[in-house]
Design a protein around this nucleic acid. Structure first.
Length: 299
DNA sequence: TGCGTTGTTTCACC
DNA sequence: CGGTGAAACAACGC
């Protein structure tokens, strides 16, 4: 579930509540969390102080005073819970374990304990997420190696290259928007929101999206991601959305009324991903009177 | 109990 | 080699 807004929330919490704190110990109960790590021993962080956290796409990197950085990818179900000595807690990422529940949970695989008693609990019910430790000097190159496209939020998006790519790709627009090398940060939830707001059917071939709609899509990306960040990430449990102030408006709302036209929201599959859309607001462009059910292979 | 789940990678193929 | 789509993969809950 963690997409860009959830990771950005974790980053901000780390920046504001962990900066300046010194690591007393790291308890890694599930060693495979730290896999493919240039520095294999988590105790390298002991005695080091948090200097800050950054983010590229859905990856967070925490920089420490000893020249080491911790890179974290939350994948499907990672969660970052910070508990301060005074009992305050701040949670970002997946809603399981329950943010107000007991820690450590059975899926809490690592703790970073600080000298003042602050603890970060890292949980992941799917165990797909990972940590990597590396010299801070290598973080930029490591980010580069992912081949991410432009950030979907934070810096102005240049629509030109994006529109150009859309014009020559025949894959569903949703699939293209999920491609992190096209644009960085959208996942299955926020991409549905972008296409709903732009009124584009998610299975529309990218090169069949009109220029105007393409501009709309690109304009909606930062809006949707900012909205997600403002909410500290959205809550979706077992594919059911718990919207706040009407957001998310489409994802996880199968069978419920479209906030715009009242039509019943439909769930389908696009590129093997669960996809929600409004059948009235988001029409496939009619080239011919062609099929409308499944994505069609074009030769 | 097999299916659904998602971000990412890999593979076969044109 | 690039675009594409399908499949694989991680592990678990329901």
């Amino acid at each position: 579930m963690p997409e860009l807004p959830e990771v950005e929330t974790a980053r901000r919490l780390t920046d504001s509540h962990l900066r300046g704190r010194t690591v007393a110990r790291v308890d890694l109960r599930l060693p495979k969390v730290l896999r493919d790590s240039p520095l294999p021993d988590p105790s390298v962080l002991v005695g080091a102080t948090v200097e800050g956290a950054r983010r590229r796409a859905k990856v967070m990197a925490i920089d420490f005073s000893n020249g080491v950085s911790l890179m974290v990818h939350f994948k499907l179900a990672g969660q970052w819970a910070i508990l301060l000595p005074d009992g305050q807690r701040f949670v970002a990422g997946h809603p399981v374990p329950k943010p107000d529940g007991e820690y450590p949970h059975k899926s809490t695989h690592a703790d970073i304990v600080f000298e003042d008693g602050t603890i970060v609990y890292y949980s992941d019910i799917r165990q797909f997420g990972w940590w990597r430790l590396m010299p801070t000097a290598d973080v930029e190159a490591s980010f580069e190696a992912f081949g991410f496209g432009p950030e979907g939020v934070g810096t102005p998006l240049d629509p030109k290259p994006l529109i150009a790519t859309m014009a020559r790709r025949g894959i569903p627009i949703k699939t293209l928007l999920l491609d992190q090398s096209f644009i960085a940060g959208l996942g299955n939830i926020y991409v549905d929101e972008v296409l709903f707001r732009a009124r584009v059917h998610p299975a529309t071939p990218a090169n069949a999206v009109s220029r105007e709609k393409a501009k709309n899509i690109i304009a909606e990306i930062p809006w949707v991601l900012e909205q997600g960040i403002a909410q500290g990430g959205v809550k979706i449990v077992h594919s059911i959305a718990y919207p706040i102030d009407g957001f998310p408006a489409i994802h996880g709302r199968e069978g419920e009324p479209c906030v715009r036209c009242g039509s019943t929201i439909v769930k389908t599959k696009v590129g093997a991903r669960g996809t929600y859309y409004c059948p009235r607001c988001q029409k496939l462009p009619r080239k011919r009177a062609t099929a409308m059910k499944e994505p069609v292979t074009m030769s």
